[in-house]
Each structure stands twice: as C-alpha cells, then as structure tokens.
Simulated assay, not measured.
Amino acid sequence: MNSPGADLLALLQDVRTLHNEVGRLLSTGEEILRERGWRGASNDSSATAYYSTGLDNPKQWMASEAFRFYRSDDGAPGVLAFVSVLLLPHASDLDKLKLEEPLVTAGWFQYVQIPTITTSVQWHSRWHGYSERTPRADGSWVETLATEIGKTEMDRYRYGFTRVRTFGRPLVQIDSPATLDALVIQPLLEDISRAKS
C-alpha cells in the first residue's frame, strides 16, 4: 500500500503523462493536416494560453486547454480551422460551462480576413465548450452565425468571424493516429469542403 505522499506523486506524474499524450495528439493532428495542405496559422508552436506563473493565481498553473489553429489559403481561403483539447473549465467559466470529461474538439471559423493568432483569438479554441451548457461529445456539429450573436457582443470581443462550426469527442476515444484521423481530422476537412461547395 502506497503512502499518501507516494500516491500524490503518482497523480502528478500521471498529469505530466497526460500533457505529453495531448501534445502527441496535437502534433499528430498537425502532421496529418500538413499532408492535406493545411499549415499552422501561427509562427510558433504555442499550444496553450491563459495560464499563470504567479502566486496570485494558482488555479491557472495548469492549462485548461491545448490547441492549434490552421489555415489553407489555397484550399479554403478565409477559414481558420482548429483542433483543441478541453481539459478543464477555466475558474471563471464554471457558471457557463459544464465539462463532464476532457474533450477533443475541432472546428472552423469563417472570416473575411483571418486575424493574427494572438490572445484575442486563442480563446476561440474553447468555442465548442461555450456552444451549449453541456457541450456535445458525440461528433455532431454545432453552428453559430455572427448574426445570432448580436452586434454588441461581436464588437465587445472583436470576433470578426461570420460563422463558426464545431464538434467534440471524448478525449479517451482518441487512442491512435487512425482514430484521430477518422473521428476528428476527416470530419473537420469534409465539413469545410462541403461548406465551400
């Protein structure tokens, strides 16, 4: 029987392992998308945001999501696609988001002009989590049009997109590159393709 301290250490090692696996999932998704004509939309390999390194905000020491954004100017101009793993709700989101388990989400935003990936856009990787009180995890698509949001919110948050479509799957379902491709990447690219035609 382990001591409480050994159990705590094992838990923390498991969290580190989870982060490594999520990183591998996003890297694999990026390789698959690159082979299909998509490239990372940012100039770096950043995959997390909105975390804290300070003593004043320990709730955000661990990332709540990990994500990557993609674009294909030839195949889908004006589309900003993403793959994201929602690990936890942010502390400020507890009244807006009921996350029952970690999710892999994907989707795309339609823009007249795609913005630079900065903190004003990075949080959009959580969009599926906000689309409904309890986000769908069955692979069904959820769509939001800018006209449904309202001008006040659009202006306040400087959204800039005209349309967003997202879906989610339980993280535990994505257990291999083939599953990632079949359940996340292919549906994402097929939906973007259908929308263009």
Rank of each mutant, 00 (worst) to 15 (best):
N2G: 05
N2E: 14
S3M: 03
D7L: 15
L8N: 10
L9E: 14
L11M: 14
V15I: 13
R16G: 09
H19I: 07
L26R: 07
G29H: 07
E30S: 15
I32E: 12
E35L: 15
R39P: 00
R39H: 12
S42A: 05
D44E: 02
A47I: 06
A47R: 10
S52G: 00
T53I: 13
P58N: 05
Q60C: 02
W61N: 03
A63W: 04
A63T: 08
Y70L: 09
D73C: 04
V79L: 11
V83R: 06
L86M: 10
L88G: 02
S92Y: 14
T105V: 09
A106N: 02
F109C: 08
Y111I: 11
P115Q: 01
T119V: 12
S120Q: 11
V121M: 01
W123Y: 02
H124M: 15
S125E: 05
W127I: 11
R133N: 11
R136L: 14
W141H: 08
V142L: 10
V142K: 11
T147E: 15
I149P: 03
T152E: 13
D155M: 14
D155Y: 10
R158P: 04
T162G: 15
R163D: 00
V164Y: 09
V164F: 13
Q173M: 03
Q173W: 08
Q173N: 11
T179W: 00
R194F: 13
A195N: 08
